[in-house]
Each structure stands twice: as structure tokens, then as C-alpha cells.
Computed example of a mutant assay.
Amino acid sequence: MPQTALVVIDMINTYEHEDAEALVPSVRKALPRIAHLLARARTAGAPVIYVNDNFGRWRSHHGELLDAALAGRHGELVESVRPDEDSLFVVKARHSIFYETPLAYLLGNLGVERLVLCGQVTEQCVLYSALDAHIRHFDVVVSPEAVAHIDAGLADAALRMMQRNMAALTCTPDDIDFDARPQGAVSRHA
């Protein structure tokens, strides 16, 4: 049976970048829904995969990246969505979760055909990741409530592009079923 995976994008973050202060309010708003998706995916036994920037720390492993993010100026934003011992972790260097990472190989080994994307930034990494997932023939689901943005207008446009150009389903976190693949699901993003 095809598997659904939750992909958490760039939530292990030090918030030491140029757009951090514009991003933080949206992250605070999305955090409860991301945590809710994490809990639901874990309860269903779905793979949870963190795909995260490495902050230019090429010799670091995921534990060191997590420690740096927790010790950062907004460590509280990381605490509620931190990986557990069963979470998988892929380090990326660019916007897309697929660009020069082993993610496609990992997903194939897990039998994953459907990706639920959450995290940050809607109009950047989430958008590019949705496109790359679509061209690799993965079904894509994004909850507008579980992604954070820098620019609200660009984020709305990005969500519309995901729907229209990438056949992504956009819905509330409660409408995402990690136990079964949806048949004929309808997008509810306006």
C-alpha cells in the first residue's frame, strides 16, 4: 500500500538570517498546526522526515544543528517541533528538499508516494519542494495553516501555484489522513 510521509522543512532554524524577524510571527502562528501534524503522523506510524538547511555547517550532524537552533535567539520555536528518536533527517543546502539530497532515494526505499509538506518558507523552500515533488510524480499535500511565510501575498500566490500547477491538495491539518491515501480529495484553499 502506498505510504504517506510528513516532511518538515527548515523548522530546525537558528533564525539568524536577514528575513528572520519578518518570518517569526508567521512561524509562531503555524507552530501549533505543525506540532499537530507531527503528532498525527507519529500516531499513525507514518514516516516523519526533517529536511533542513545546514547553516553552512558542513561538518555538523543533525544533533549539532538541533543544538544550535535550540540555543539560538528563538529556540522556543524549535522546541515544540523537534525531531524524536524515530524521525529521519536529511540535510539540504539549497531551497528544494530534493536538490542534491538523498531524499528521493529514501522515499523510494520507504515506499512513499504522497508527501505532506509543512514548515517554512511557503513562498520559497515549500514552493520549490512542492514543484520538485510533483515532477518526481509524488502526490503533494500542503496545509496553509502549517506553513510559515515572510511575505503573505507571495505565500498566497505560492499556494495557488501549488494547487493549479502542481496538482497539490491544500487543506486543513485535520483533513490530512496519514493512514490511508485519499481518493478524489478536493482542495479547500481559497
Results as ranks from 00 to 15, higher is better:
Pro2Trp: 07
Arg188Gly: 13
Met1Glu: 15
Val51Cys: 04
Leu6Phe: 02
Leu154Val: 07
Lys92Ala: 10
Pro83Arg: 05
Ala93Pro: 10
Asp19Glu: 11
Ala155Lys: 00
Gln163His: 13
Ala104Val: 11
Leu107Trp: 01
Met166Cys: 15
Ala152Pro: 05
Asp139Val: 09
Pro2Phe: 08
Ile176Ala: 01
His17Gln: 13
Leu88Ser: 12
Asn165Ala: 14
Val90Gln: 09
Pro47Asn: 04
Leu37Ala: 04
Gly153His: 11
Ala35Pro: 09
His134Arg: 10
Arg94Ser: 13
Met11Ala: 07
Arg59Glu: 15
Val7Met: 09
Val147Cys: 03
Leu70Phe: 04
Arg73Met: 12
Val121Met: 08
His149Thr: 08
His95Lys: 13
Ala41Phe: 02
Cys125Glu: 02
Ala133Thr: 01
Val51Lys: 00
Gln163Ser: 13
Ala185Cys: 11
Gly75Gln: 07
Glu123Lys: 03
His61Arg: 15
Phe138Val: 07
Ile176Glu: 01
Asn52Tyr: 00
Leu106Tyr: 06
Arg181Phe: 11
Ser26Asp: 09
Ala130Pro: 01
Val116Leu: 08
Arg160Asp: 12
Val90Tyr: 07
Gly45Val: 07
Asp177Arg: 05
Ser143His: 04
Asp179Gly: 15
Pro47Arg: 00
Leu159Cys: 07
Val112Glu: 00
Leu23Gly: 00
Gly119Ala: 04
Tyr15Pro: 05
Asp139Asn: 12
Ile97Gly: 13
Gln124Thr: 10
Val7Ser: 02
Thr122Asn: 05
Phe138Trp: 07
Ala5Leu: 02
Val112Met: 02
Val142Thr: 03
Met162Asn: 04
Ile176Leu: 06
Arg33His: 15
Asn52Pro: 05
Ala130Trp: 01
Ile9Asn: 02
Ala148Arg: 01
Met162Ile: 05
Met166Arg: 03
Asn165Tyr: 12
His149Phe: 10
Glu100Ile: 12
Arg40Phe: 04
Val147Arg: 00
Arg40Trp: 06
Ala158Pro: 06
Thr14Ser: 08
Tyr99Val: 08
His149Ile: 03
Val27Gly: 02
Tyr15Phe: 15
Gln183Cys: 12
His189Met: 11
Gly63Pro: 09
Ala167Arg: 13
Arg28Glu: 14
Asn52Gly: 06
Gly184Asn: 10
Asp139Glu: 14
Asp174Thr: 08
Asp179His: 14
Asn52Lys: 04
Asn165Ser: 15
His61Asn: 15
Asn52Phe: 06
Leu169Asn: 03
Ser187Phe: 04
Leu115His: 01
Val51Gly: 02
Thr122His: 03
Asn52Gln: 07
Arg59Asn: 15
Leu107His: 03
Pro2Ser: 14
Val90Asp: 09
Tyr128Pro: 00
Glu113Arg: 12
Leu159Gly: 04
Asp174Phe: 02
Gln183Ser: 14
Ser96His: 05
Ile150Gly: 05
Ser60Thr: 09
Ile12Cys: 06
Tyr50Asp: 02
Asp177Met: 06
Met166Asp: 08
Gly63Thr: 14
Arg114Asn: 08
Gly108Thr: 10
Leu6Gln: 03
Ile135Pro: 04
Ala167Thr: 10
Thr170Arg: 14
